[in-house]
Amino acid sequence: MGRLRKLLIPGVDKKLLVRDAVKTMPELTRRRFITAGTSLGALTLLTGCDVVDSSSAEELLKKVSKFNDAVQAWMFNPDALAPTFPESMITKPFPFNAYYGLDEAPEIAGADWKLEVRGLVDNKKSWTLDELYKLPQVKQVTRHICVEGWSAIGSWTGTPLRDFLNLVGADTHAKYVWFQCADKDGYNSPLDMRTALHPQTQMTFKFGDEILPRAYGFPMKIRVPTKLGFKNPKYVLSMEVTNDYKGGYWEDQGYNSFSGS
């Protein structure tokens, strides 16, 4: 211990130290702190350049993210219902949001559009908008939460996706329903089957009792109130029931695919 103390306070008059540790220590310890501060700064620089951007750190973070998915799946009830709100709480105007401007949003002619159904389903027939509109619809007012942090309450009306999946004879033991969309650069997103079968997950045809406007995904959007906004594809062209993880527009760039709220 004595040797350690000498190492810690080299060159300090011991008498002074004994008489008044407070007076002698500050300068020395301050000097030590500056040294420590310098190395801490160097570490920050390192983490700024070498560690953070290095692929090894990225790989580690992705592993933690996968681990988080597993923990969340184990910890939380996937059938938990998203809170619903009175219509008076609807956010007006409801924000348009995409990785492109509104003028670049897909313009789809409803009469020509057909929903393509592929993969592990009994009936692979494509559906026209008129056919889809005839399916029983429900309205729900829920909160849309964006991965960016903002949120907005909206009113969405449509057919529960699980009813449609049953109707087309989908293999509901498959892992995913994968959606492809008309957004520029080809938006797509996978939805885990459990969430696809969630009672509030909806094939949406109306926003605020009006036919879904172009800004919000005409002719069809998938509304998933238990997931972040980017897991709610708009301008849907096709759905595929599959056991393969096919990735997604944002998922491939690093947003967590679970992204359940």
Binding site: L60, N68, V147
Partner: peptide, 12 residues
């Protein structure tokens, strides 16, 4: 670096 990276850090 960007939102996606920051979220990975935050949740790690």
């Amino acid at each position: 670096g960007w939102l996606g990276g920051a979220l990975l850090w935050h949740f790690a």
